[in-house]
Amino acid sequence: MPNEHRSDIRTALRAAFPHTLPIFAGFWFLGMAYGVYMDASGFSAWYPILMSIVIFGGSLEFVAVSLLLSPFAPLSVLGITLMIQGRHLFYGLSMLEKYKGTGWKKPYLIYALCDESFSINCSVRIPDGVDRGWFMFFVSLLNQSYWVTGTAAGALLGNFIPFSTEGLDFVVAAMFAVIFLEQWMKERKHWTALIGTLSSLACLLVFGKDSFLTPSMACILVLLTAFRRPLEREGGFA
């Protein structure tokens, strides 16, 4: 590999790393909680580690614990998986342009398209002179490595944490709130932000916290489709 190329990679890693620090905190906390939960449910450490590598989706991995403890039901497992993970379709649609032309890194970028990597790669303005593909690749890779190592740490030594970490999981909500604000300040019109927030709140109240995600996405899709003309005329997307 030529030297110039290697320094490009280092520059991208150095630019990506700070953006992933809040994810490090959030994923180590949630990942450890997940590892401890798997351990307490009687699974050896290999299970949560394997699942964090091949599934890499926090909510589904938590739900999968009870699926693994129930009788074998492949079809309902698939149904639950698609319900919980359906939001990734939205991330994919949003990242079609951004992930274009990233070559061999593209399959991994898509494979590791979790909430947090989507948030960063979708909202961050990558500095001039930093390779886009490598930047987004490192964001995704670092995030997944935090999740896998956090899970492993929880599964192997979770019972030895000496202090209360209650409330630490708020870091994930804080991150989404800050990204939402950044997006809000970048755009001229806020209709789509309001559509997303209010549909989700309404569906949360109507359907409850375990099943509001699919109706929320349906509402958002219907509203964006119905108001396409005025929204496009007004423009102002970030």
Binding site: R87, Q183, A193, G196, T197, L198, L204, S216
Partner: peptide
């Protein structure tokens, strides 16, 4: 979608 999705993720 992005702004709408970030609103959804906050909720």
């Amino acid at each position: 979608l992005p702004s709408a999705v970030f609103g959804m993720l906050v909720v």
